[in-house]
Structures are given as C-alpha cells and as structure tokens.
C-alpha cells in the first residue's frame, strides 16, 4: 500500500510537471483564425491526457526499477503474480470510455471548424507545379497572393492543375489537399491582421519545398482598396507583365534566359531561331510556336528533351497573359 501511495503522488506531480513544461515550450505558431482556436482547445485536452498517461506509466516503471531492483548479493525470484482479471477489466474499460469521450469531443471540434457561413467570401484556388493562384469570382480578380478580409469566413474552392498539392497556413491550423479532377473545400475565418505564408504540405515533386505564397489578412477597408487597385491594373505594359508572370510562375527554374542548360530549353535567342525537334523535323520559333509551347507544351518536343515534363498553362493563364509572355520572350537575345 505504501508503494501505491508513493506512486500515486509521483504520477500527480509528473502530470502537472509535464503539462506545465509543454506549456512553457511554446508549441504552436500564432493563432490567426477561429478554426485555430478550436483546434488548439482540443490539442490541450490531448496534452493533458499525454501528460497523465506518460507519468502514469513512466513513474510506475521508474519507481519499480528503483525499489524492486535486485540488490547486491540478493538471490531468489520476484513475487509470483500471474495477473488480476478485475484489474484487466478495469484498465480495458477506462481507456475504452476515454477514447469514446475523446472521439465525441473530436467530432464536436470537427463540426466547429467546418461550420459554414453562407456569406463567406469565395476564392477559387488553383495549384500547380509549383505555384499558387487565387481567383476571386465576385470581383473578377486573379492573383498569386491571397488577400483576405479579417473576421470574414473565406470559402476556398480548390483544385490542382497537375499532381496533388495541399493548402496549409500554419497560423490557420487547418489543411486540405488539392486533387486534380476534383474540387475540394476549405473554410477559414482569419481573425488577426497580418502576413502569413501558404505552404504546400503534400510532396509535389522537385521544387515542393519552395511552393509557398503570401497571405495578407487585412482590414475590410484595406481589402476594398486592394480589390480596386487590382481591377484597375488592366492596362499594363505587356513586356513588363510578361516579365512579371515569368517570375511569378517560376518558369525560369527550368528555362534559362542566359543560354545555360536547365531542365527545359533555354529562352536566350529563341525567337525566330530554327529549332530541331525530337521527331527529326525542324520548326521556326515564331510567335505562334511560342504561344503553342505555353498552352500545349507536348505539341512540339525539342530534340534532347522529354515530353510531359512541362505542364500546360492553358487553364492557368488567360489570352492576354500568354500574349504578354510571348512578347517578353521575343525580346530575349
């Protein structure tokens, strides 16, 4: 009995100690959405359970090792105890009740983070190797940065252009995959003004590590101002726009502009040059060829390169954008 009381005290102290220790470590990033509040609340229940069960097993074990170890010169065997059915039933039923309870509050927490606000702002998210693109159907805006008004639910309707990606902002906590050929939904209610990063959480090939984009959570006024500024930038110099797009979509990760060798053919001096193709023919790189190569890359494969490496940008870029990129490419010598 003396042993049991000592162990019980150790377990209580251990539980409080472990939980307090975890609390001071600072385990989570900033809490920047309503969903984050619900997630963190449930996580704290888990942390209490972890602290308690860890202390229960480890303290009992450590106590046994210290007190019941074989001392010098001691002989003989341990106590002959084969088991105890009451105890076994007890420690089967208690965890069973605990997990049913945990699953119940888990389901409630899921319900909370999936609560749908009918007045949510809809943003269509399109991901591809390796870029993020956000379309605001209400305003006719397409952007590679995500601007969100604070304290308003956003309904992200997401799909992928090529492989599976995953939308994650650690400060928002929640995460959802983007699957080609299907639309997935994620709802977030940002409640803190600030700048965060969207990270791709599902391995999506070579440059997966760098597949990030900025999220700006702004006040309602700032959001309205941003919408206005986006809608009025239609008249931009196409050369400048082309150059911006090329950088934005990371085209130069594969295509150099100085003639050096990368995954795809270089752009240096490409315009009006004679291109040898994989099927043995040649083609003159006129404007038509440049545009085709962006929206239907597999049509002409340059000799020495493989098909199916470059994704099609037909559904990513609109006509003006493709024309702008072509104009930019024409200037590269």
């Amino acid at each position: 009995m003396k042993h049991l009381i000592t162990v019980a005290i150790l377990v209580v102290l251990g539980t409080l100690g472990v939980h307090a220790g975890l609390g001071t470590l600072g385990l989570l990033p900033e809490q920047a959405s309503l969903q984050a509040i619900a997630v963190d609340k449930l996580l704290d229940v888990h942390l209490w359970l972890i602290s308690f069960l860890f202390s229960l097993i480890v303290m009992t074990l450590a106590y046994s090792l210290a007190v019941f170890r074989r001392r010098k010169g001691e002989t003989g065997e341990g106590a002959h105890m084969e088991g105890n059915t009451t105890l076994e039933i007890f420690w089967t039923m208690i965890p069973l009740l605990a997990v049913v309870f945990l699953a119940f509050i888990g389901a409630a927490s899921l319900g909370e983070i999936r609560r749908i606000d009918p007045s949510a702002l809809q943003v269509n998210v399109l991901a591809g190797q390796w870029y993020w693109q956000y379309q605001y159907p209400e305003y006719g805006i397409v952007s590679t940065e995500l601007y969100l008004p604070v304290d308003r639910q956003v309904n992200l309707q997401m799909t992928s252009n090529d492989v599976i990606h995953s939308f994650w902002v650690p400060e928002f906590r929640v995460k959802q995959d983007l699957v080609p050929g299907q639309t997935t939904e994620l709802r977030v209610t940002p409640n803190m003004v600030g700048e965060f990063r969207v990270l791709c959480a599902e391995l999506c090939g070579t440059s997966h590590a760098y597949m990030e984009s900025a999220v700006f959570v702004v006040t309602e006024e700032d959001f309205a101002a941003w919408v206005e500024s986006q809608q009025s930038t239609a008249e931009v110099d196409p050369l400048l726009l082309g150059q911006q797009l090329v950088q934005r979509y990371g085209c130069t990760a594969c295509h150099s502009i100085d003639g050096s060798q990368r995954t795809g053919p270089t752009w240096a001096g490409v315009f009006e040059s004679v291109i040898p193709l994989a099927d043995g023919t040649t083609i003159i790189a006129d404007r038509e060829y440049l545009i085709q190569s962006i929206i239907n890359p597999n049509l002409h494969i340059v000799e020495g390169y493989n098909p199916n490496v470059m994704p099609s940008f037909a559904s990513v870029l609109d006509q003006t954008q493709v024309e702008a990129i072509a104009s930019y490419l024409e200037t590269l010598k």
Binding site: R69, R70, G76, G78, G83, L87, A98, V99
Partner: peptide, 23 residues
C-alpha cells in the same frame, strides 16, 4: 482511437510485470 485500448492493455501488463520483481 479504438486501437488505444488493446495497446493500453500491453503497457499496463508490462508495468504489472515489472512491479515487485527482482529486476
């Protein structure tokens, strides 16, 4: 979560085995 139940039985049994042994 149900997996935790049989797994818990193992842990408790190990602790029960070590208790009052000659380690």
């Amino acid at each position: 979560l149900l997996v935790a139940v049989p797994t818990g039985v193992k842990f408790f049994s190990w602790v029960g085995t070590v208790w009052r042994g000659k380690i």
